[in-house]
Amino acid sequence: MLGHLIQAEEGTRLITIYRVDSGGMPTLYTSVSFEEARNMGFEKFGRLLGENLILDSPGLRDLFSL
């Protein structure tokens, strides 16, 4: 079972998505700096975040026939 962990890391000022395997081990998937997210704007960043999760989740990809 694949899952995801999303962290807003204050120290590094990164929004990071990790893949989490069935054993609970996280692996870096992608990250965006706070500055990049702010420059994208709320709607565009929200869409990017959602697309990353959907495209990396086989069950969600199937749900949307991607």
Rank of each mutant, 00 (worst) to 15 (best):
N39Q: 14
D21L: 05
N39E: 13
I6V: 15
L53A: 04
T12K: 14
S33N: 01
Y18D: 07
D56L: 11
N52F: 07
E43Q: 13
I17H: 01
L28A: 06
M40C: 04
L49F: 06
T30H: 12
L5E: 09
M1P: 15
R47D: 10
G23A: 10
R38Y: 09
R38A: 13
S57H: 10
Y18M: 04
E9C: 08
G3K: 08
Q7I: 14
P58T: 02
M40K: 09
L60A: 11
R19D: 11
I15Y: 07
R38W: 06
V20Y: 01
I17G: 02
I15T: 08
G3Q: 08
H4R: 01
L48P: 00
G24V: 02
S33V: 01
T12G: 03
G3L: 06
P26F: 03
S65N: 13
P26C: 03
G59W: 08
F45K: 04
P26H: 02
H4T: 00
P58Q: 04
L60E: 06
S57P: 02
K44G: 00
L5F: 05
D62T: 12
G50H: 00
I6S: 03
T27S: 14
F42A: 12
E36H: 10
F45Q: 03
T12C: 06
D21G: 08
L14Y: 09
F64P: 01
G11W: 06
Y18K: 01
M1R: 12
P58D: 04
S57T: 14
E9F: 07
S65H: 13
I6E: 06
I6A: 09
D62Q: 15
E36L: 09
Y29T: 04
G59T: 11
I6F: 11
L48D: 05
Q7T: 15
E9V: 11
N39P: 00
G50W: 02
Y18Q: 03
I15C: 07
G23C: 05
I15W: 08
G46D: 03
G24R: 05
E43I: 15
F42K: 08
K44T: 13
M40F: 07
S31C: 13
I54Y: 01
G24K: 03
E35M: 12
